[in-house]
């Protein structure tokens, strides 16, 4: 399993061969294009990261929930509510930071709603998630008001000193906005937490075999509440990213399916933060290439064709690279003790 440290380094490379081959090909391709068109290559990579950030965050949310045994198909709604709430708070108070915290807070509340219905009341998890998506759509559209702006403007790029001056990599990795940096840090952190700490082991045990966890004194209900609420907070951060960092305003249905793509990204990554990150980057890269095509007026006779590039990449990856993905065993089942 990819969750355990490889016993043998050769085995590790063999198991990950498709990831490694894909990465090498993309790196070679990128270096080659940057030889003659550095500006374009840089903008593709920057846009890759920008496209991938909400997907990574959404996938981390899904991962926290599903590793503990709760399906969260309400990520989309949690993001949307937080994007809206974060924007409202930031535009009223004039503080972006306050807006981000409000987004996270609203996400956690939405996580609490999901946990309350599906863990506390043992309701159907799919229905609970759907309720959140529909409610978020309705609430944000109803209270949506044109003409609100952010007094402080959207979040600004923070350059990391001399690192930002490195060609290509400096622009891509070290000249980003705060939530993007946070996301890049969150991936290895979450991996470490999940596979090296008490909390992580217990989360995985609860998601795989809740009654086994209960018999060694772990509170299944408690762990699930904790994870689903924390996951909601991460989805909230994704929402805040959209309205406060990427766009700078709120628009109706601005999540545009990203919450669902994040679920697919999580499955590509086999419920592993690092895997999900890789999957999100691949998806982001495909989206960035698509944007480039449109800039250059390539294949504009059939704009729909360009639009499907990311999805074709998705299908090819899903069919060829992922292989057998096994979800946590107790996923979707409400837990009760007797």
């Amino acid at each position: 399993m990819s969750d355990n440290p490889p016993k043998d380094i050769k085995q590790f490379f063999f198991n990950k061969r498709w990831w490694i081959i894909t990465t090498v090909l993309l790196v070679v391709f990128t270096l080659w294009t940057s030889e003659f068109q550095q500006a374009n290559t840089t903008s593709v990579l920057v846009s890759t990261l920008r496209h991938s950030t909400p997907l990574v965050l959404g996938a981390m949310c899904g991962l926290l929930c599903e590793r503990s045994g709760v399906i969260n198909i309400g990520i989309e709604g949690q993001m949307l509510m937080s994007a809206w709430g974060g924007f409202m708070v930031a535009s009223t108070s004039g503080s972006l930071l306050l807006g981000v915290f409000a987004g996270i807070g609203i996400g956690m509340m939405m996580g609490g709603v999901l946990a309350g219905i599906s863990v506390g009341l043992r309701g159907d998890q799919i229905i609970a998630g759907t309720v959140i998506n529909i409610a978020a759509l309705g609430i944000t559209s109803f209270f949506f008001s044109l003409g609100r702006t952010l007094p402080s403007g959207k979040a600004q790029v923070i350059k990391l000193g001399p690192l930002a001056d490195i060609p290509v990599a400096g622009r891509v990795l070290f000249s980003n906005k705060p939530i993007t940096y946070l996301t890049l840090l969150m991936v290895p952190t979450l991996w470490f937490l999940l596979f090296r700490t008490k909390w992580g082991l217990r989360t995985r045990a609860v998601g795989e075999h809740p009654s086994a966890a209960e018999t060694v004194g772990i509170s299944v209900i408690g762990m699930r509440y904790l994870n689903v609420i924390m996951g909601g907070g991460i989805a909230g951060l994704a929402g805040a990213y959209l309205s406060l960092e990427a766009v700078g305003s709120f628009e109706r249905v601005m999540t545009n399916g990203k919450g669902f793509v994040a679920l697919a990204v999580m499955i590509f990554g086999r419920w592993n933060p690092v895997g999900a990150w890789g999957a999100a980057l691949l998806f982001g890269y495909a989206s960035a290439i698509q944007t480039q095509f449109q800039f250059r007026d390539w294949l504009t006779d059939d704009p729909q064709f360009i639009g499907i590039i990311p999805f074709i990449v998705t299908i090819v990856v899903l069919a060829g690279f992922v292989g057998r993905a096994r979800p946590p065993a107790s996923i979707g089942q409400p837990y009760s003790r007797e």
């Binding site: 909390w199 795989e208 009654s211 086994a212 966890a213």
Partner: peptide, 24 residues
């Protein structure tokens, strides 16, 4: 009541894991 995908050691210590102050 064992978690099938975890190792023998992980199953045995589950819920009572030897760890440092940071819960690693």
């Amino acid at each position: 009541q064992l978690v099938p995908v975890l190792t023998v050691a992980e199953n045995i210590v589950l819920g009572n894991e030897p760890s440092n102050k940071a819960n690693v």
